[in-house]
Design a protein around this nucleic acid. Structure first.
Lengths: 229, 229
DNA sequence: TTATTTCTGTGTACGGTAGATACAGTTGTC
DNA sequence: GACAACTGTATCTACCGTACACAGAAATAA
């Protein structure tokens, strides 16, 4: 996975035949496949076939599959949001909600952003704008602000993953709940909590709950700092 | 991926040749490979070769690779911790730290626990014991307790992933920081925060910071509830 | 205009993956 | 001893990512 490709793009040549494809077109098709059938369905063969080309032609545009996935992530996450910010809390709430929404729009992006990998300009842009929202007079150190943003991002990721898992209730969840009812005696708290959860609101509520708790905790620290100083 | 296999195991036969392998042995070897070379290095071929057998012999013990990974997770996460609990806060702190430690011991388990998949008994056991710690008189609803546990688990996961990424500083991080310095002007907050972070403490500090913030937020809610009632 | 260079897209090939199936050999039970 | 059940292996298919060689197209240099 070459970092340069992600940041500097691909120098387009002047000579030779006109390219029939574009990086954007390839990425869009790959994203469409991933949206419809998951990240596992994205193969060079599949993407090329969707474009009416052979798989090897894609390698004229991309060094390899890792770069394709990186481009998919950058395109799926979108430009960093413009935060119509008053307080840091309002700004970070907006930021988290938009990140959560982006994950929900493209559930595969959760799977695609695990493990060690180079970050693209947009991904860094998102971090930058969250840090900026938290920066103005919060009294937190740089490390603390990084940690806070990481917690928020992690929360959005986790909830998006859970929401995606709940989207497809195709038998596996049925088998799972069958297991829970069978061994329910071993997990009393869990069965009770899940019974309650079933009635009330969906995944957005869970996200908002966690987000509010995190921001409450952050506010408590910021208040303490501002009092002391 | 069959749920039954995870929960009921494999009925061991009486007749026929003595099995040369055991499920535990296979799982242990697979975990050893994953610990040393990452989850991507775990293939049926590789695990079988490590055991001195052909890959197809493994299918006498496991329905498929998905089940192997599921067993690896169950074995790697370990038994749910016995929380020497006083307050809910102490208990959840201990719980989160042990989960974080488990992720650090087996960094591949972060990659292995993405996406929709059936949960094993130990994984549910961990949830159960966290819910129990939060249950006694916290005043939270079942859904809220589930959400709170999810936030804590997500935090442990995210920080473990970051820590694992920072373990191998093999050139890619170098290329990455080269990019950041080149485009540093676009990310002033980020570069400033990262410069600060470099000097002070490691990943444990980041984990503790986020954990404390989450628990602070949770405490604020619980206090509010107990006052009102 | 022609020749040359450079690029695109394709066909072929290789090593890797997961898994199905058929079969030989071993071991317990009747 | 016959039979049934099980283990481990060999062979096969169907993918995957990608290296390499080659034919044709297009822009430039002569």
């Amino acid at each position: 996975m070459s970092v340069e490709f992600l940041w500097d793009g691909r120098a387009q040549p002047t000579r030779g035949p006109k390219p029939a494809l574009t990086l954007e077109g390839i990425t869009d098709v790959a994203i469409a496949v991933a949206d419809a059938e998951g990240l596992a369905a994205v193969s060079m063969q599949r993407v090329a076939a969707e474009l009416g080309k052979t798989k090897m032609s894609l390698y004229r545009y991309l060094p390899g599959k890792a770069e394709l996935v990186a481009l998919m992530i950058e395109r799926a996450i979108g430009e960093p949001p413009e935060l119509s910010a008053g307080s840091w809390r309002a700004a970070l709430t907006q930021w988290s909600e938009r990140l959560f929404a982006a994950y929900l729009r493209h559930p595969w992006s959760v799977d695609a952003t695990v493990g060690r990998r180079p970050l693209g300009p947009r991904e860094l842009g998102w971090m930058e704008c969250a840090l900026a929202a938290l920066g103005s007079g919060s009294g937190l150190t740089g490390a603390e602000r990084l940690d806070a943003v990481a917690v928020l991002a992690g929360h959005a990721r986790m909830l998006a993953q859970q929401a995606a898992a709940r989207l497809d209730e195709d038998g596996m969840n049925a088998a799972m709940s069958e297991v829970v009812t069978r061994h329910g005696a071993r997990f009393p708290q869990l069965t009770a909590a899940m019974r309650e959860t079933a009635v009330e609101g969906g995944q957005n509520q869970a996200f908002t709950f966690g987000l509010d708790r995190i921001l409450d905790g952050l506010a408590a620290l910021i208040d303490r700092r501002s009092v002391r100083s």
